[in-house]
Design a binder for these strands. Structure first.
Lengths: 191, 191, 191, 191
DNA sequence: AATGAATGAGCCTTCATTCAT
DNA sequence: TATGAATGAAGGCTCATTCAT
């Protein structure tokens, strides 16, 4: 019954998302998962054989639906705003915020010599941002001498905010002012 | 004998530093420590009663000697260079790099409602950097409209690089170009 | 399977009863229990998470079936004999005698500020005995001026014998002569 | 330095008495002793090599000075009062009450097949009490048909009160009324 | 005599994983 | 598929006891 199976799998992922979001990655045990999904110990192993496997599915699920908005024909400024809004949403998300879990997972991968996909994700985002900046330059919306460097710098700052959210915490106001600061480097922004 | 005791304690901290640096914070067990220091299970408990206690001492030790350089009478540019050099050193440090462990600890603290001291450290660094920028403005070395915002932005970017080092990895070249990018915002930099 | 589970639980209680009866309460470890039931270290924790929990179940089990006899319509003398016979049985019981364990547990509880239930048990027994004495007075079987005080005194003496059994030991003959002594205070007893 | 040695030994016994009185016998560790006496771990072993050894010395010390009163030429009633007062004192003693520790020790001994001396102590007390009763009979102070049985019964009741003190607790009023009840069996007592 | 660091055994508890049903 | 009892390894912690100084 693939359908039934999928429903079960989905249930696991949903509950696991909550768990990873509140406990991070390393702390979560198979027991945690079992006790929160309506499933038996043995049953869970029919679907997943480690917290890592589960986490990877949680991640895929989490990334789906990020690009839902239709941005065909959008201006560079619109694209940029959308991009930063997404970033802001991720940083400030109250429920099911996986930032800490992601970093813990990435740390664990690096220590085990595995590839966590973080590098790839950063590279992708970097490219997107760079393209947006280039487009803005061309359309005259932005004035950005070195789009590559600017994109890179922005991404590091965004990562800094994310990690800050997982440690000291960060307020929406702070995030906003940081985003404004970034944008001012290449465009006019009203406060 | 306090001297002997201190030597032992130092040995523990030294070995623990290596361990935390290679395994991060969460994964490390008292057993790991025991097996790497020439000490017995019970013996370790004479000095420390948890990995957290050990880690906190490792941190103190790690932070000692950061400010050794004599910076009396230095110019703003010199101070800034020193500050960034310290940051760069921390990011790229090959041996005993505690970045990952620090973040894992900070994450764990946040989850347990403890204070990891990260916020305080960031605030302090932010203040230092801001003062340097103000000083540079006054001496005419820098042109920086909003030192507070600039300092904040730089620190996030630095944090981003640190966390990147713990996940995807980062090259010296990349760090350098980021630092140059930052500095260009308020001063002339040759490549 | 609840049935299978119950069987296991019963096995644990049975073995534990033997252990507590031979080692008392304080000395018994989870390891002792594990090694005597055919169960694994972790397995035991599925049923009980401390020796105290196990002991409390051992006690309940031990007290079941104490009141089996049908005493409806019995005379005061019959009731008294039944009561004392029960006490005698408890004192002299060869197998699975939990007297020492009970006292050790009660001591431990007192030291920890917990309620061991001993007081309640004594109060209950005191009341039962008193009622029997009153009934005997009314039916003319006994002549007992102060049933409350007599009941209290008898219970202390019985407790004294119990504790004596756990320390110096006591013979059946001795118990019998004590019981006879007590009864003579308010009724005719042939040797 | 036998003198110095004795002082140290005395210190150990004094502190140990407090400890045994608050923790009972089984729970007390060599560590407890060490930490409460001003002595080193190794030092303690120069005097005693187990908690049992220490406890036995604590007991001897505790029993010394029990018979200080001069009872030469006392009447049976006086002797009895003195005896019961001593018992009452032991039961109600607030500070350094070793009742629980004694029972725990006696239980432990019985389980190990050792002789705890409890039996001997009871026999001795029984004999003393019996002699007092006989003497009272002869002087006409008491009317007690079977002094042996009465003595035995009284001692069990006293033991019952002691053990009760260690478990449920007992009030002075209760002890008093029990003592009065006992005495009424063979003498006139005003309330 | 005295110290207290050091040892290692022993018990506690939790967890990933298996397996009979 | 699904269950959940059972296992045993792993790590945490404490304690009696020893030993170099």
């Amino acid at each position: 019954m693939s359908q039934k199976t999928d429903a079960k799998r989905q249930l696991i992922i949903d509950k696991a998302t909550e768990i990873f979001s509140s406990k991070g990655y390393r702390e979560v045990t198979m027991k945690d998962i079992v006790e929160n999904c309506e499933i038996s110990r043995g049953g869970l192993y029919l679907y997943y054989s480690s917290t890592e496997e589960i986490f990877l599915d949680v991640l895929s699920e989490d990334q789906e639906g990020e690009n839902i908005e239709d941005l065909e024909g959008a201006s560079a400024a619109e694209l940029l705003l959308w991009f930063l809004k997404e970033q802001k949403r991720e940083i400030l998300k109250k429920k099911n915020n996986l930032i800490v879990a992601k970093y813990e997972y990435a740390f664990a991968c690096r220590q085990n010599g595995k590839n966590s996909g973080v590098k790839k994700k950063i590279d992708t985002e970097s490219l997107i941002l760079e393209k947006i900046l280039v487009k803005g330059n061309e359309s005259g919306e932005f004035v950005c001498k070195d789009p590559k460097a600017t994109a890179s710098n922005m991404l590091y700052a965004l990562q800094g905010m994310k990690v800050c959210q997982g440690t000291a915490g960060i307020t929406e106001k702070k995030v906003d002012s940081e985003l404004v600061y970034m944008m001012r480097q290449f465009m006019e922004v009203e406060d």
